[in-house]
Design a protein around this nucleic acid. Structure first.
Lengths: 134, 134
DNA sequence: CTGACTGCAAACGTTTTGCACGGTA
DNA sequence: TACCGTGCAAAACGTTTGCAGTCAG
């Protein structure tokens, strides 16, 4: 993953702060604003929260990054990938991507509503196996 | 629907403001805080936003009301009902409940993650048939 | 009568904005 | 060089809290 080139592909100027944001999202998968800010503080001790917000908004506008809204939790951000669902552990707050076959689901929605579906937001809350063992 | 009795069933004191909140949610289905505030202003010209917030939090705590987080939109609130999904029209912002058979989906999640699922948040974004005609 | 609810004002946390400076292309 | 991004400070916004007065049970 070449972070700088990926930014360019999305029409975003390359700056060290942006590269670091992409890198953290790539490595960590899902981060909320505070987590991202704290990670970046290690590399850029004088980085501003305003910079984080401005960059997230710029990346969201280019659909390079997407916000994931989670019940009872702060929103997290992830690099745009192929459509997938999320599992959130209510205990350790871990978030995992789940790739599901949603053809049947979308067929049901189409039959019941006759609406055109453009995107989905599927979040499953529960207890992960690590937390369940304790 | 007897609003006062329903409030009592959920261990919530009955006040005119609360009855009005339940009534609006029952009639409108889904409302965000501003919409609810504006509706209640008609009946209670001096009602405070703080009252709305306090009551929503009280009702959520009793699981009488639930928050629905929607991508790119403000959260809306609805009376707790049986599990269901939501369709949101990107054009007119209309929100509709959809009752889907999710057995297959939950089976897939169970097989792929071995996690215990306690709740789901399923939101479908698209264009409703009324907006599609235009 | 007692405790809970209301409405107001202030406080708080989060996100956005304006501006001077510095860096990217 | 021209424009865009950064960081700081202030502003804006949404939500919560404290308090005095009022109401429900």
């Amino acid at each position: 993953m070449n972070y700088a080139n990926t930014l360019k592909n999305y029409d975003l100027k390359v700056t060290p702060q942006r590269v670091a944001i992409v890198q953290e999202l790539y490595v960590c998968g899902h981060l909320n604003i505070d987590q991202l800010y704290n990670k970046l503080l290690e590399k850029f001790p004088s980085i501003s929260l305003a910079t984080i917000y401005k960059n997230m908004n710029a990346m969201i506008e280019k659909i390079f990054v997407q916000e994931v809204k989670i019940p009872n939790e702060k929103s997290v951000y992830e690099l745009t990938k192929e459509r997938h669902a999320h599992f959130v552990c209510e205990c350790c707050k871990k978030i995992e991507d789940i790739h599901l076959d949603t053809d049947n689901l979308l067929t049901q929605v189409a039959q019941k509503t006759h609406y055109t579906i453009n995107s989905t937001s599927l979040v499953f809350n529960g207890i992960c196996s690590e937390c369940a063992q304790q």
